[in-house]
Design a protein around this nucleic acid. Structure first.
Length: 419
RNA sequence: GUGGGUGUAGCUCAGUUGGCAGAGCGCCAGGUUGUGGUCCUGGAUGUCGUGGGUUCAAGUCCCAUCACUCACCCCA
């Protein structure tokens, strides 16, 4: 076969795809339980939305976007993240004109043109939660709790929560200037020196040891917070404490998107190698205005479904493939195949999952199919049985087999399958 | 964008100083002509990533190229 999946695009097929759905379901349940509603937003948007929303100084915008001209000459971009699109949709449809906050969740693929590696893909699957129109630190803590319960529901026990604040429009500029003063005095490579001028906070997050050593004594935002940011941050932390969600203060934690303000956080998993961030979020109080909307604060997170799958596997939590069906039909001969096809359909209509052997398979092959389907019962039907007006119902676990009149097959199986 | 590693059966991988292309798992069939899962026996499947070079002879050595992969950077 001469085709292969595009570079950097992971695919999930059975049995592993079950874990994919389980991860989504765990977070969807957590979000729904906390009163978040589903929103479906476009996979591509006007390029300008991301440029302004995510930020011109970010790597995501400057070198990682899948941007192209459509046939009408418009520049569109496959979403590199969800928050800008969710905010745009909220503003466009006036969701914020009702009671606030607007609490939304969404999920699907996002796209970034990067060199793939373990846990880093060009098409990545995210699960997002956004609470728009609130400054209440309790909602900051709520979003963290929602993500946390998603991880818990999957059984992950090694997730670390790193928490920081980035200050706000009032206090960040002064801190930024102080940080730049400090960083300009260091011995750094050219790319990093440029970053000092564009986005100095990100230098703090550099993972290279030689950089880390030098920023050891850099001024920290936590020492430069205004009174309201400090109160906000303290409140978030004390609420987390009330909930029993453990966190680590990470005063050097910076997120890569420009819109973050105040609360920022990241979930890490120690077993994943270089790309250990399995989720991250924060407050984006200026985003609405950045894209031409009214002042409208917000807080939310994205978790990486692909990386969570890796974490689930690293902690050996992958579930065994569930039985595909409860009943499997084994027809012998043309007439039996026709009757079985209808019986299987009737079983499904009666709420009993069922499959059957096709292609005129022989008894041995069909029974093998029954075994692999994970079915609890096989229904065997041959000419002999049709003549007798009955089918053989075999309990595949015990091997016991009984003859059941055709008219009673469905009720018998329903009964036996009900615990 | 930068650097390292790896390409052999459907999958995971072995393949010696260059000398007949292999194993396990899976798949198919038979043992059992109406019975799966265990067991036994047998069977099929390869442009050895691709192109070139060296050699009597290349999976093995050399060059190029492509793909995959890990890491930097960045982020979910």
């Amino acid at each position: 076969m001469s085709f292969q999946a595009p570079k950097g695009v992971p695919e999930y097929f059975p049995p592993r795809s079950a874990t994919f759905l389980a991860v989504r379901a765990a977070f969807a349940t957590a979000a729904q339980n906390a009163g978040y509603s589903y929103i479906e937003v476009p996979v591509f948007e006007d390029t300008e939305l991301f440029a302004r929303g995510v930020g011109e100084s970010t790597d995501v915008v400057t070198k990682e976007m899948y941007t192209f001209a459509d046939r009408g000459g418009r520049s569109v971009t496959l979403r590199p993240e969800f928050t800008a699109g969710v905010m745009r949709s909220t503003l466009e449809h006036g969701l914020h004109h009702g009671q606030l906050p607007v609490k939304l969740w969404t999920t699907g693929p996002a796209f970034r043109y990067e060199r793939p590696q373990a846990g880093r893909y060009r098409q990545l699957q995210q699960f997002n939660v956004e609470a728009i129109g609130t400054e209440d630190p309790a909602v900051d803590a709520e979003t963290i709790a929602v993500a946390w319960s998603g991880y818990q529901a999957l059984g992950l026990s090694q997730v670390r929560l790193l928490l920081n604040t980035l200050g706000c429009k009032q206090c960040r500029p002064a801190y930024r200037a102080a940080l730049q003063d400090f960083l300009r005095g260091l011995d750094l490579d050219e790319a990093t020196r440029e970053r000092i001028e564009i986005n100095p906070l990100r230098v703090l997050d550099d993972k290279r040891p030689e950089v880390r050593a030098q920023v050891e004594n850099a001024p920290l935002i936590t020492d430069h917070l205004c009174a309201s940011c400090k109160a906000h941050h303290d409140r978030v932390r004390s609420l987390l404490e009330d909930l029993g969600v453990p966190w680590e203060d990470a005063p050097r934690l910076v997120r890569g998107l420009d819109y973050y303000t105040r609360t920022t956080y990241e979930f890490d998993h120690p077993l994943l190698g270089a790309q250990s961030g399995i989720g991250g979020g924060g407050r984006y109080d200026g985003l609405s205005e950045d894209i031409g909307g009214p002042p409208l604060p917000g807080i939310g997170f994205a978790v990486g479904v692909d990386r969570i799958i890796l974490a689930v596997e690293a902690e050996n939590l992958s579930q065994e493939a569930p039985a595909r069906v409860a009943v499997y039909g084994v027809p012998l001969g043309e007439e039996a195949a026709r009757r079985m096809f209808r019986l299987v359909s009737e079983l499904r209509a009666a709420g009993v999952s069922a499959d059957m052997a096709f292609d005129g398979k022989g008894l041995k092959g069909a029974m093998k199919g029954a075994d692999r389907s994970g079915a609890a019962y096989a229904v065997i039907l041959g000419d002999r049985d049709i003549a007798a007006g009955a089918a053989q119902v075999k309990d595949l676990a015990s091997g016991d087999q009984t003859s059941v009149p055709l008219a009673e097959i469905i009720t018998t199986l329903k009964e036996r399958l009900t615990p």
